[in-house]
Amino acid sequence: MFREFEGKTEQEAIAAAVAELQIDSQDFDVEILDSGRKGLFKKGPVRIRVHLDDEQFEEVEEGLLSAMTVPASTDSAIVEDYEQEIVDFVTTLLVKMGFPGSVEISYRKEGKLGLEIISKHSSIIIGRKGKNLDAIQLIANVVAGKLHEEIKVVVDSENYRIRHEEQLVRLAYKTAEQVRLNGRSRLLEPMNPFERRLIHTALNEFEGVQTKSEGEGLYKQVRIIKDDELPPLRS
């Protein structure tokens, strides 16, 4: 018995086999069908064939069957009608924008529906500082609000949101360190409420500095101030 796998390199193809079959790479024989060399510099995918004895094959079959049936019986695999409508809305929106891609539900938690856009146009779909992604998300939320009252849609692509959050927290620490060293307060760029909250929370535990928001409207700025520079509180 054998099964075939593909990867950019031989190692990747073997890793794919190990992940799917759930057995150690030492436990099976690998035959390389296509080494991926398509010329001097061109490289195609590497194809391998994994040989298994009958006993192993049965185990694998059982494993695959249970892996396929288990998620279908849990809540997460059942797509509600309104969820499908939101997914369809975003998918069509991307097509009409001229940047087609696929939209998948990545998570559901605490009334949030996470959508992941997979597209070769992801850089423009995200936009500068996530501007386009935020606009798509806002519209998707209005549409979702019409379908289902208590759902918040989070639209992401290429893990932009988590990368951006990490970047903001790093910026917060770096700036706070500077403020603590030279004592001069620093004003960060305008940010939306969610981003500002991240900064406030990150620096809440940070000794020696305080934060406060300045400005009006949706996009306020966070100022980081050294503790003893604050005017003394009057009792």
Partner: peptide, 24 residues
Amino acid sequence: GKVIGKQGRIANAIRVILSASATK
């Protein structure tokens, strides 16, 4: 009102999506 939104948020989002699409 639904197309403009509070403080023009929805209208702005539509404009952002439009200009992203128009870059081509």
